[in-house]
């Protein structure tokens, strides 16, 4: 390896140009990366900016392009029951995620730690369900849930969301638990725990990053979903926020600032959950890389 050393007093314009040092190249690389990230951040944040700015205008101000007003926010709650819809979304999201965790954690533990004859085959079947798009199974699901008489309130949608999210959680928990040393669980078993005790008291406390990852990703997915809510929650008093916004958008005269205000309210919880769990999310998604 050759190192070029140029004494400071000789580095004037008359000197022949030397290749940039490694230091300079690193600096240029860092600036290029920084610039690229700024561009990406602007592209990503611009819609939020437009959403917020537009929501702070009246209909007239939006069409004329200038001004500031809280009018659209005031009108929004009169047009749709925002509070009720946010509550509905929260109930559907929480219940679905609870089921996903309650099913996914023991299933992941079983696939990772308990060897049984057909475990690999069963695991592959469950995980392959991740690859089936929602649209492909929507109609059969709808027929089944209707036959059960569950299309009115939350329950049908909760079951459908739980069924759609569980394969991913089983996959993620299985991967995570494979990294937990067998000896930790065996130590617990010798200390007097059963398998459920070992899962609950030893494995779950150290699986917080994986639980956070499943929670955040499923929360964003369920909270933002329109289709399932639209089809399976038919009681207007129980419809989620995404359905409410769709109703708003489908009105005869759609107020864009109101729609943006509603969208902002709808996006806010997902953003809060994401930012709150971001640290765990990165840990959960990158797990296994350093092993």
């Amino acid at each position: 390896m050759t190192t070029l050393i140029t004494p400071p007093q000789e580095s004037d314009d008359r000197e022949a140009p030397t290749p940039p040092s490694r230091n300079t190249r690193a600096k240029v690389g860092r600036w290029a990366l920084f610039f690229a990230m700024v561009v990406i951040a602007v592209v990503m944040l611009y819609p939020f900016w437009v959403m917020i700015i537009t929501s702070l205008k009246s209909e007239a101000q939006f069409l004329s392009g200038g001004g500031f007003s809280w009018l659209s926010w005031k009108h929004l709650s009169a047009t749709i029951p925002v509070g009720q819809e946010v509550l509905s979304s929260t109930i559907v999201c929480s219940a679905s995620i609870l089921i996903i965790l309650v099913v996914g954690l023991p299933a992941g533990f079983a696939f990772a730690k308990l060897r049984f004859r057909t475990s690999t085959a069963v695991f592959l079947v469950i995980v392959s369900a991740m690859m089936v798009p929602l649209q492909a199974i929507l109609m059969p699901e709808f027929v089944n849930v209707t036959k059960l008489g569950l299309t009115g309130g939350y329950f049908g949608a909760i079951l459908v969301y739980a069924a759609l999210g569980t394969p991913f959680s089983v996959f993620l928990f299985t991967t995570y638990f494979r990294g937990v040393p067998d000896e930790l669980i065996e130590a617990g078993i010798v200390d007097g725990l059963g398998y459920f005790g070992a899962l609950w008291r030893l494995v779950v406390p150290i699986a917080i990053p994986a639980i956070a990852t499943v929670t955040v990703l499923q929360f964003i997915q369920i909270w933002d979903d329109l289709l399932v809510g639209l089809l399976f929650i038919q009681n207007t008093s129980e419809r989620p926020i995404t359905v409410g916004l769709a109703v708003l958008a489908a009105g005869r005269t759609t107020s864009i600032p109101e729609l943006m205000a509603g969208s902002f309210i709808s996006a806010l919880p997902a953003m809060i959950v994401y930012l709150g769990f971001q640290r765990y999310l990165v840990k959960g998604l990158t797990m296994g890389i350093d092993r």
Binding site: E183, L184, A187, I189, V190, D191, G192, P205, I206
Partner: peptide, 27 residues
């Protein structure tokens, strides 16, 4: 295993990472 009344020390110690030393010993 829990009914055999034996205690085991593992090669990699298998300490519970989310518990303190006292909690580990008293678990």
């Amino acid at each position: 295993p829990k009914d055999r009344d034996v205690a085991m020390v593992f090669q990699n110690y298998a300490l519970y990472p989310h518990m303190s030393v006292a909690e580990n010993i008293g678990f």
